[in-house]
């Protein structure tokens, strides 16, 4: 996979993608009254991070980027978002493995699995875990299975939009880059070496 080999560059890119996830999730959020949640466009960068940089980066970008966004305005969703969005990026990265832009099949399967895990994960939290937690901690008593069912469609649409965007940006990022990997150990020298 044409990933960034330089640790410094990889860290910078992960940080940038985490910030972009947080910003896009935070700035454009349309509330879903049934679940007290919201529709957003941040999944694009989670899928992109998983496909481009692997499972670890996918997890960091998904978990921290989205949780930071939830911290402002929707703190009750932080635990669910941290786990669900983290798993979305991690699963995408795990399944995508070392596939390059030569074949689209594996990245598509990876992105779709990541998106589906997000939809299933939120349903699980909103339908079962939060109502269960809500019996002990009233703060979590904000959803029920019926509300979670209503949120399935918005989450699926949000996931599909993220899958397509992540795939498109990943393809643009990695197109024609198999021969251009750069590492810290063997830096290029000279113009057009």
């Amino acid at each position: 996979m044409p990933r960034i080999k330089s640790k410094f560059a990889e860290t910078a890119v992960i940080a940038a993608l985490t910030a972009l996830t947080a910003v896009t999730t935070m700035l454009v959020r349309v509330p879903i009254p049934a679940t007290n949640g919201y529709f957003n466009i941040g999944d694009v960068f989670i899928i992109l991070a998983g496909l481009w940089l692997g499972p670890r980066a996918g997890f960091i970008v998904g978990a921290f980027g989205s949780a930071i966004a939830d911290a402002i305005g929707f703190p009750v969703y932080i635990p669910a978002t941290f786990i669900v969005k983290g798993c979305e990026g991690w699963l995408t990265g795990i399944i995508a493995g070392n596939s390059g832009p030569v074949s689209l099949t594996r990245p598509v399967v990876a992105a779709v699995t990541g998106g589906l895990s997000m939809v299933a994960g939120y349903y699980l939290f909103e339908a079962f875990i939060y109502p269960l937690l809500g019996r002990q901690i009233p703060m979590f008593n904000i959803t029920d299975p019926a509300a979670a069912f209503i949120a399935l469609l918005p989450n699926a649409i949000q996931g599909l939009s993220g899958i397509v965007g992540g795939l498109a940006l990943w393809k643009a990022m990695t197109a024609g880059s198999q021969n251009h990997e750069i590492s810290d150990e063997q830096p290029f020298s000279g113009k057009h070496g």
């Binding site: 960034i4 197109a175 251009h180 750069i182 290029f188 020298s189």
Partner: peptide
């Protein structure tokens, strides 16, 4: 054109000629 642009900037966020890009000055 993205492919052409990548010839100059292969790592997308880093330049091709970057011998001295290890330190904080980068």
């Amino acid at each position: 054109l993205l492919l052409v642009w990548r010839e100059e900037n292969p790592d997308m966020l880093l330049p091709r000629c970057r011998d001295d890009w290890h330190s904080i000055s980068s």
